[in-house]
């Protein structure tokens, strides 16, 4: 079992080198992208786009495999993302940042791969369940309002997970920037 895990780790490492090589080739070709007519023999647009898309798919796959090889790290990393973002949200005391932190937490967890994404979904569902029950139980929020708020939060959560999976190397604070309110978008 350990040999198999080692062998997978070697493949992941080797693929990482391949991705770096692919990156170098793409950087070398980028100056030619969009510079030639479609019928021109020097047109590399289609090939360039294909290589670019394959590079991203490979990155996502490697990220997923890395996450599955170290499951405890992925799970704890995802939980850590949720806790940190929740603490940041509570300390800011700004409800308009709610969707931003919801999506950022899910984004960071999803960047741990497919396992991180699954943990993020589970934690998000649990939180929404707890929130809905608590708000209705206090009788200060109607059932319709609680469900509507939960739906809005889950939309932000899904968006965060999607972007985190697709862009595992990007800063989630930047990826989810559009979910900040207008008065918090100024730098």
């Amino acid at each position: 079992m350990e040999d198999e895990v080692s062998s997978i780790e070697n493949i992941v490492s080797h693929t990482g080198d391949t991705i770096s090589e692919l990156d170098e080739n793409l950087n070398g070709l980028i100056s030619e992208y969009g510079m030639h007519l479609p019928e021109c023999e020097y047109n590399i647009d289609n090939d360039f786009e294909q290589m670019y898309a394959q590079k991203f798919e490979l990155k996502i796959l490697i990220n997923d495999i890395s996450g599955l090889i170290t499951p405890l790290q992925s799970i704890l990393g995802s939980i850590n993302s949720f806790v940190n973002n929740y603490i940041d949200l509570l300390s800011e005391r700004d409800g308009s940042m709610d969707k931003f932190y919801h999506s950022k937490a899910n984004c960071e967890a999803a960047q741990n791969g497919i396992l991180g994404s699954a943990v993020a979904k589970g934690l998000s569902d649990l939180k929404e369940l707890y929130d809905s029950y608590t708000y209705i139980h206090t009788h200060k929020v109607s059932k319709e309002e609680a469900l509507a708020d939960s739906a809005r939060d889950q939309k932000a959560n899904r968006e965060g997970r999607t972007r985190g999976r697709n862009y595992p190397d990007c800063d989630c604070a930047v990826l989810m920037w559009d979910l900040r309110p207008a008065h918090r978008k100024q730098k």
């Binding site: 509570l90 409800g95 709610d98 918090r184």
Partner: peptide, 24 residues
């Protein structure tokens, strides 16, 4: 629970300190 509800739903109990339009 009250702070969580305020931040999450925007329904805030009297006495809670929160930001409205960036002002605490």
């Amino acid at each position: 629970v009250n702070l969580n509800m305020c931040i999450d739903t925007g329904i805030c109990n009297e006495g809670i300190k929160t930001k409205i339009d960036g002002v605490l």
